[in-house]
Design a protein around this nucleic acid. Structure first.
Lengths: 340, 340
DNA sequence: ACTGCAATCGTTATCGGTTACGTTTCCAGG
DNA sequence: CCTGGAAACGTAACCGATAACGATTGCAGT
């Protein structure tokens, strides 16, 4: 019987098997140069003691660990969906996954978290990392793939076709007859936020509707950031008849504020989001939004990282995935009579 | 300018600052015994080189790392929801989180994964771990909290009130008039699977309905496992008028099979699940299910683990959370005329 | 100037593995 | 019997950090 709480180390195995730790290591890793008899002895000792090698210790000395990392600053639905895709891509690939998330989740966290986490892991633990919605460009000695990268980055990344998606969303509102369309922007540094705003502007301009800067609120993708912005837009004497938010999280917040202020959706106000997180289908009414398959983003990012690590990647470094409009109940033609 | 791909180590900092690595370590960790002037020098060097301490290296030597771990064998909606709760509980707690998931996600993976992962991490990297739906009892020198533990475990755990939940679900079906109610069980080793089956039996017995063993299919919580079982139940000459599945994932599979075999839900067949994962609200019709707030499970588990690590826990080691029935469109009274 | 105690800082062992290198063993070939 | 070389295995350095311990320095007290 093994005593509980005994951390079994390699030297324990070596002692029991009557060999050196080097030999145990060779057996564990299947290296050449150990006799069959010795291998059997070591195996027996390992079995008997219930030994498992420490990922930490081995990763310190080794260069390859067969572990990929994912760092994210928060863990909302967005990240969860991405994660499912990542796991799918990694299934039976020989790579394990470590997700590192810091505890400064809600509230203000300092910029550069991704660099900190990355260097803390990447130095040794992981062979490469996926970074979800980074704050800036990162440096790392192992490959890094960004999901939803910063603007202007040329590093490996995966993102949705945000420009087309946003354009389609606004065209949908225009098609319903809306002309005063508010916009709540995302975090400025991200390419996605930028493209979604571009799409908003382009669709309006193409339709001959002038862009009114006072109808644009500057959020940061954090749902909380949308509340005051929505309040400002809706409490104007001339509120917009529709609001396009750059993320579902923010759009759902807009729905909340609208309800609170007595707007009926879609009667008094149409709302469109972006992302198509699961919650968007559950609200009453359902949120019209742009689907960007976060699952797919994660899947592609993991596939790319895997190949980058093994040095087999031969496709373009920047992947752009298509989007599609999902029309639900939160959009309708504007009422002719503006709300008093 | 710093050269790219240069892994900056503590000795680099020491060299630049003109001190020993021990002093750098003291500065980094805010230990006593360093003059203000030296601290400034070291800080400058750290800044200049962009140094970040390696989590791996320090965890090897240290006992406390302020990192908690979570290991899960798969990453479906269930785990994602749990994770959100965990993150919430850990936010601004000073603890970071590492999630370890292996790549043998889909398909057959060997039992005992949780023990392997645990020993690989727990030896050094983490101060404690949360294990989601383990295969067996685990040993670890650091605290472990199980979410949905194995049957008969007395170790720290968090679980839903599965007995009451299942009883309520079946009573709901009985109340609608169903008498032939099929059941698809979960993974036998888990306490939750056991309790849910107990609830099923108890509700039937209390209502004076004999338990028919041929109406019980033995699944394992994996959605795939439910398909053949549902097929068997529904292709009988005398199919049940309702099926209660021990998890939503399996219940959704039952819906699929039912549709495939030409059963209309809830016309020909009522279906009830357990868990209330987000997808359950999205199907047509929506799935009637038992809500067990996986978010809450994660939240409580993290709260408990946090306190166990710091040695402040003074509540019972086993937490049971309430459940509630969510009635949606997949249940209705049975049609009087049995299906041909 | 001398002692004694803190404060400061470097040296070194250590965590649990991996691996370069050196040593021993064994056997085939001369 | 001797030599050469490969196979088998141990020794020790090393990965990047921490911490126990020892050494040095500075300064107050006498």
């Amino acid at each position: 019987m093994i005593e509980v709480n005994a951390p079994v180390t390699m030297s324990d195995v070596a002692r029991v098997a009557g060999v050196s730790t080097a030999t145990v290591s060779r057996v564990v890793n299947g290296h050449y140069g150990v006799s069959a008899r010795t291998i059997a002895q070591v195996r027996t000792a390992i079995e008997q003691l219930g030994y498992e090698s420490s990922l930490v210790a081995s990763s310190l000395r080794r260069s390859r660990t067969n572990v990929l990392g994912l760092v994210a600053h928060s863990f909302q639905s967005y990240t969860a969906e991405v994660l499912k895709g990542v796991m799918k891509a990694l299934s039976r690939s020989g790579f394990d996954l470590i997700i590192y998330a810091n505890s400064d989740l809600y509230g203000s966290y300092s910029e550069g978290w991704e660099q900190r986490h990355l260097t803390r892991l990447s130095g040794t633990l992981t062979d490469g990392c996926i970074v979800v919605t980074p704050w800036g460009e990162v440096r790392s000695r192992t490959p890094v793939v960004a999901i939803d990268p910063v603007r202007g980055s040329t590093a490996p990344s995966v993102m949705a076709d945000n420009l087309t998606g946003a354009t389609t969303a606004v065209e949908h509102l225009l098609g319903l007859g809306h002309r005063r369309i508010g916009f709540i922007a995302g975090r400025d540094s991200l390419a996605s936020a930028w493209s979604r705003e571009e799409g908003y502007r382009a669709a309006l301009t193409d339709a001959g509707v002038p862009v009114d800067p006072t109808l644009i609120g500057r959020g940061d993708f954090n749902p909380e950031s949308a509340a005051p912005l929505a309040r400002v837009l809706l409490q104007r004497p001339d509120p917009p008849s529709a609001i396009f938010a750059a993320s579902d999280g923010m759009a759902l917040k807009v729905l909340e504020v609208a309800r609170e202020l007595g707007f009926s959706v879609p009667g008094d106000l149409s709302v469109v989001g972006f992302d198509n997180i699961p919650e968007s289908a559950l609200t009453e009414p359902g949120l019209t939004t742009v689907d960007q398959s976060m699952y797919q983003l994660g899947y592609e990012a993991a596939r790319m990282l895997k190949s980058l690590v093994t040095g087999e990647w031969d496709e373009p470094n920047q992947i752009v995935l298509p989007t599609s409009l999902v029309v639900r109940g939160s959009t309708a033609p504007p009422t002719s009579a503006p709300r008093p």
